[in-house]
Design a protein around this nucleic acid. Sequence first.
DNA 1: CTAGGGTTAG
Length: 582
Amino acid sequence: MANLNALLQKCSSNGAVSHIHIKQLQAHLTTTGQFQSKLFPVRSKIIEFYALSPLNELAYAHALFRQINAPSTNDFNAVLRGLAHSSKPTNAVLWYRQMLRGSHRSDALTCSFALKACARVLALFETLQIHSHVLRHGFLADALLGTTLLDVYAKVGEIVSAKKVFDEMGVRDIASWNALIAGLAQGNLASEAVDLFKRMKMEGVFKPNEVTVLGALAACGHLGAWKEGDKIHDYIREERLDMNVVVCNAVIDMYAKCGLLDKAFEVFDNIKCRKSLVTWNTMVMAFAVHGDGPRALELFEQMGRAGVKPDDVSYLAALCACNHAGLVDDGVRLFNSMANCGVKPNMKHYGSVVDLLGRAGRLQEACDIVKSVSMGTDMVLWQTLLGACQLYGDVEMAEIASRKLVEMGSNNCGDFVLLSNLYAAYERWDDVGRVRKAMKNRDVKKVPGFSYIEVGGVIHKFFTSDKSHVKWREIYEKLDEIMFKIKEYGYAAGTSCVLHDIGEEEKENALCYHSEKLAVAFGLISTSEATSIQVFKNLRICRDCHDVIKLIAKVYNREIIVRDRVRFHRFKDGACSCKDYW
DNA sequence: CTAGGGTTAG
């Protein structure tokens, strides 16, 4: 037995586990008849070895398990762990159910593995079931399991439950805090994530580590809260967490997402540790979304020269750069060269190149690509094409794309509105009415967009037509003033297109209707001394706002930077950095 | 002893 344990130790030490040793063990157990011994822990170790083997030996592990006359909890857990890590975690959930149906005891480990699987397949129902199980057996006193549970809730989008678990946990440790901070950052509650990070620092029970700052930095990036991000960067340097590449990547990304491209590059350039693939990708993407196509492509090349092999994300970043800078032929060439470099294009690459061709007016080529890939499952490509159709006023192709989208069961208001607007541009009011009616029949939900602006270290959030801000009266007054000034400067023609397509009764307030306009107006009120204001939007900045902000920037002689989910827009002197965008 | 929290793309 002692001998066997030594052998086992050998098997799992330094990760280089050898099949030979495992086979030896296995043979020994079988010949001595110990394989069926319930109390023999090495058996489940062997099963676990096969279940987690990178050589895809899960089926073999399963077969071994079936040979056991009376499997123990550990044996069950070994298979469960393998299933949870496999490409089909659903099977882990099924396995867990089967385990409950039998008379087998499950322990904290069982719950932990099953929860891991739930997180991967976003199985809320099972999570609830396991949660009640955990409560019944008092496992919540276990910090590890509590954290897993919290994490699963956050990942399946049940942030409220995640917070509840955090509050009710008997024992918390640093991972519990980290899981909640990261969960909040991911779950559209970035400001709460930042608050929790501050609270953690203040309470001082746990010292924020690498993982903590990753969550907090992600939150700052989402919010565009560069002041808070700056403080975290200071903390990282003080605590020497910047020896970790992952942390550095997150810092670069945070600065890039906040619009501070120079700061991002500074960190990239002065990095103390070895740059990883992600480091390069993050920086290329930063240049790309900021509209500096040439620099992005240059860095992409440089990356290859530095001996770093580009992956799918690198190509996506490079394509994004071409897209933004209008480098159509470069983009197509890059796209075609992917296969030679051993990188298989995915939906995002197709989407990018379709967008690129579409914006350049090469609609037929774009359409051909969409047809060649889309197996009738991917809506994004057709939506992209539809957007391009609107840009070039191609009604026929727009109808084809719309029909496809409806066939696929699109419930996206944008798909309908786009077609409607296109008809409206040709004054085909009957068709407009038809589309609006279809929308009503299908009960298409409108997705409320929102924007953030950071003023004096405080983050303000605005929804469309939002009146919840304490200064809402002032903000709307400012919007009136903006409208008046724009007209006064003789841009009435420009604004008429802004007002186009809005119902008669809404025209009066058209300027107030978008969250980014509210944020810009608030910025103008609050930051009179600054030359530039920054707004962050969770969705794409719409064409109306793009036009209006261009005008505001000119009339008020200010630089206005708006970041949306797609890219940065720098408005200055009546122009935008992304000239090709509309 | 075995288990939990993590960077780019969306």
